[in-house]
Design a protein around this nucleic acid. Structure first.
Length: 135
RNA sequence: GGAGCGGGCCGGGUGACCGCCGGCCGCCGUGAGGCGGCGGGAGGAAAGUCCGGGCUCCACAGGGUGCGAUGGUGGGUAACGCCCACCGGCCGCGAGGCCAGGGACAGUGCCACAGAAAACAAACCGCCUGCCGGGCUUCGGCCCGGCAGGUAAGGGUGAAACGGUGAGGUAAGAGCUCACCAGCAGGUCGGGUGACCGGCCUGGCUCGGAAAACCCCAUCGGGAGCAAGGCCAAGCAGGAAGAAGUCGUCCGGCCCGCGAGGGCCAAGGCGACGCGAGGCGACCCGCCUCGCUUCAGCUUCCGGGUCGGCUGCUGGAGGCCCCGGGCAACCGGGGUCCUAGAGAAAUGGUCGCCGCCGCGGGCCUGCAAAGGGCCGUGGAACAGAACCCGGCUUACAGGCCCGCUCCUCUC
């Protein structure tokens, strides 16, 4: 499989609840502004994947969809520069205003630095509790 | 021209590049899949999830009580709490609008504040009569106070005070009586499918509001939901508790008897009663089904495993046009079109051009701070399908069309 640098097929997305739980369990994260990024090395390494978590507290369906689209587009742009062989989860924190029309560039830059920081962090003790942080 | 009323409709357009979801075709690949091509991809409310249906599973003798919903009449519809027409009441000069619009002589309760009194009436002031006491007197009476009684005409309170006007009547008054009017009840006639409308007669003369207080009446209503339901794959570990049978009969075998018949036996069929469990929407009556034990099975409880894939899944009470029926909602017939199917959940990003709306002590035209054009700059609402329809409700920048009413102006 050789997806182009610009594409973002379904195989680059985290889809299953089990995948999400695995990434959360590693407990490596970095946060800035409205975003929190969790990272986990893949076993075995494959293509870089991303999962999105946008809570109902963020806004109504239109606002949540806008966030997801912006984050997917940002991920599509910076995916080639991210640490390889990792899964990432991006959580949008509530209580912060939406970035305006020019927010895509900032979101992409923020996503890139946060992903690098999270992946470079030493792996924390895998969480024993089943409870997933956030929602 | 201004003010307004009622309907209907739109919800930026177009192009390039980079992406996403699913469909069809071709090629490659054992396969998962990949590549290429073609065409499709949010709304008028997709929203709230408030009603009504379809669909799926479960249930489906009946009766009573309860619960919920609805509430003028007639129609429309698959159905409705929706829509249409009409009736009645209220509001508006009008076009039109609003109404949770059955029953308040079935019953219980309520009517704040104010007021004497808020509903089998009632006497605060006032008015009138009688008696007692006091004062004045022109000796006719008059005034003040008290007591007993009459009185719903007048005052005052209130959202609301037990009909209105006039006449008679009276100590003063009162539907107390009478005339007319309003209203109510009963009867009757006529019109209308009906809600109702109109006329006549009689009655007592008069009965307040609120049913969105409880309630009564009528009508309607099985339960749960696409996480319904079906199929496949994978995987695990079981444990505990619970019950009550008895009798009759039939068939079979054995024994006794010459025989009619009698006795014994284990398992079974049927029936009765009993017990247990489940179902019949909640409860009761009642009914149905299953079971009544070695194990097994059943029911309940605890524990363990999975939480993947396919399907349901989008063509439908469907949209548009024409003809016919109907005041209309809508119905019938013909033609034509195909229009999203995700599942941690696609429909996005960037850049042009055009259109719309602002802003500009920028430019041009122009007598002009009017209008128009150019340039620059900014903005564009409410909101995202999740099984599918019919409604209702709520949100919404900006804009378009049609019909009608009132006022004003010009001819």
């Amino acid at each position: 499989m050789t997806p182009s640098d610009q594409g973002l097929p379904k195989t680059c997305r985290l889809v299953r609840p089990g995948d999400f739980a695995r990434v959360y369990a590693v407990r490596r994260s970095a946060a800035a502004g409205p975003l929190v990024v969790y990272a986990a090395a893949q076993e075995p390494p494959g293509s870089t994947r991303i999962g999105l978590s946008v809570s109902r507290r963020i806004g109504n369906a239109v606002v949540r969809n806008r966030w997801k689209r912006r984050l997917r587009e940002a991920f599509r742009r910076v995916r080639a520069t991210l640490p390889t062989g990792h899964d990432f989860i991006v959580v949008v924190r509530s209580g912060l205003p939406e970035p305006g029309a020019a927010g895509l560039e900032r979101t992409a830059a923020s996503l890139e630095t946060l992903a690098a920081r999270a992946a470079a962090r030493p792996a924390g003790e895998p969480s024993r509790s089943r409870r997933r942080p956030g929602s």
